[in-house]
C-alpha cells in the first residue's frame, strides 16, 4: 500500500512542471510552493517529495513503491524525509527548531536518493529563523531539496525568496472544480462554497463538511446586529475568538469588500458573498464610502496582526467597534 497522495484534477500542469525537474535531472535546492490556501499545495509537495526520495522513479517521475526508500516513506519512518512545522498551530517556527535541523542536515543523507525537507507554512518562520536558514539555503549539503510551502508569499523576506525556485499555483478552473466537488458528494451550494473559499477546492470541501456556511450566516447576522445597535461589539467578539479568528477575519474582510462593491452598484454575481447580496446592498446604502474604506484598511492591517502575539479579543473589539461607529451616523 502506498500513501503517496493522488493528483487532483487541476494539478496536472503543475505536476508535469515538477516532474521535469526530476526527469531532466536538474533538481533545484529549494522550491517555493506559493498559492491560495486550500488549493492542494501540501499534497503536491508531498507527492513530489515521495518521487524525490524514491531511488527508482519510473519514466513519469512516479515513485516505484517497491524500493527500500518507498517502503520507509510508506511506513512514515524515512530518515531523509524531514518536516518542519510550528510547534503549535498558528505559532512561529522558532530559530531553535532551525538550528536543530541544520545540525542534522550538515551530515550526508542516509540513503542514495535525495533528502527532502518540507517547511510549512514558510511564512511562519520568524526573522531569526530565516536568517539562520539563509546560509544553508544558499549552499545546501549534497542531494538535499527544500520544499517551502506558503499561502502568503508576500510575507517572506526577499533574501529567502531569491534563493528559491518558485512555483505559483493559480486558481483552478471553476467548472472543473465544481465537477470535482460533485464527485466528492457536494451536491448543492457548490457555486457559493467556491466563491466563499475564493476558488480553493479543498477549502470549499472543508467548509461543506463542517457546515461552515451555516456558521458564517450566524456570524453575519451578529455582524448586522452590531450595525443595527442591537448588540454590543464586545459581546460578539467574545464569542468570535472562540471560533477560528483567522477565518472570521477573512469573512468580515469579504463582507466589507462586498459592501464597497455594492456602493459602486456592482451586480450580485461579482460579489464574494452572493447569498448575502440583499442584506449587503441594503446596508451599503446608508454607509459613507470613505469611512468604509478606513474600516477596510483596518481589516487589512489586522490580517497581519492576527498571527502575532496580540490579544485576539481586543483585535476583534477594535474592528467591531469601528464597524458599529461607522453605522451610527
Amino acid at each position: 500500500m502506498t500513501i503517496t497522495p493522488d493528483l487532483l484534477p487541476w494539478q496536472e500542469a503543475d505536476w508535469q512542471h515538477l516532474v521535469r525537474y526530476i526527469t531532466g535531472q536538474r533538481i533545484p535546492q529549494a522550491v517555493l510552493f506559493a498559492g491560495n490556501k486550500g488549493i492542494g499545495k501540501s499534497r503536491l509537495a508531498e507527492r513530489f517529495a515521495h518521487s524525490l526520495l524514491c531511488s527508482q522513479t519510473d519514466t513519469n517521475g512516479l515513485p516505484c513503491g517497491q524500493c527500500h526508500s518507498c517502503q520507509l516513506v510508506n511506513a512514515q519512518t524515512h530518515p531523509d524525509y524531514i518536516r518542519l512545522n510550528p510547534e503549535e498551530p498558528g505559532k512561529a517556527i522558532k530559530v531553535d527548531q532551525i538550528r536543530h535541523i541544520l545540525s542534522v542536515l550538515s551530515l550526508k543523507p542516509q540513503y542514495e536518493a535525495n533528502r527532502v525537507v518540507i517547511v510549512e507554512p514558510a511564512d511562519q518562520l520568524n526573522i531569526s529563523a530565516v536568517n539562520a536558514f539563509l546560509k544553508f539555503l544558499e549552499e545546501p549539503s549534497e542531494r538535499t531539496v527544500l520544499l517551502l510551502i506558503t499561502d502568503k508569499p508576500s510575507r517572506l523576506p526577499a533574501t529567502l525568496m531569491s534563493r528559491c525556485q518558485k512555483v505559483y499555483f493559480s486558481k483552478p478552473d471553476p467548472e472543473r472544480v465544481k465537477q470535482w466537488l460533485f464527485d466528492q458528494g457536494i451536491k448543492k451550494d457548490s457555486e457559493l462554497l467556491l466563491s466563499v473559499s475564493k476558488g480553493s477546492p479543498l477549502l470549499a470541501l472543508d467548509y461543506a463538511s463542517n457546515n461552515t456556511l451555516e456558521l458564517r450566516r450566524k456570524c453575519f447576522d451578529q455582524w448586522l446586529d452590531i450595525a443595527a445597535l442591537r448588540t454590543h461589539p464586545y459581546i460578539v467578539s467574545e464569542q468570535w475568538v472562540k471560533l477560528d479568528p483567522a477565518l472570521l477575519l477573512t469573512w468580515i474582510t469579504g463582507w466589507v469588500t462586498d459592501l464597497i462593491k455594492c456602493c459602486f452598484h456592482l451586480p450580485a454575481e461579482r460579489l464574494i458573498n452572493r447569498d448575502l447580496f440583499e442584506d449587503l446592498h441594503k446596508s451599503a446604502q446608508t454607509l459613507e464610502l470613505s469611512r468604509l474604506y478606513s474600516v477596510y484598511d483596518l481589516m487589512l492591517t489586522s490580517r497581519n496582526r492576527i498571527d502575532t502575539q496580540l490579544n485576539k479579543q481586543l483585535l476583534f473589539d477594535e474592528l467591531l467597534i469601528e464597524w458599529a461607529q461607522l453605522n451610527e451616523k
Binding site: T308, Q309, L310, L314
Partner: peptide, 22 residues
C-alpha cells in the same frame, strides 16, 4: 457613556499593541 466605554476599549487595543511591541 457608552461612547466613552467604547473609546476605552479602543485605547486598550492600542495598549495591547504597545505592550507587544507592535
Amino acid at each position: 457613556k457608552l461612547t466613552q466605554l467604547n473609546k476605552a476599549l479602543l485605547m486598550s487595543t492600542e495598549a495591547d499593541r504597545r505592550i507587544k511591541g507592535a
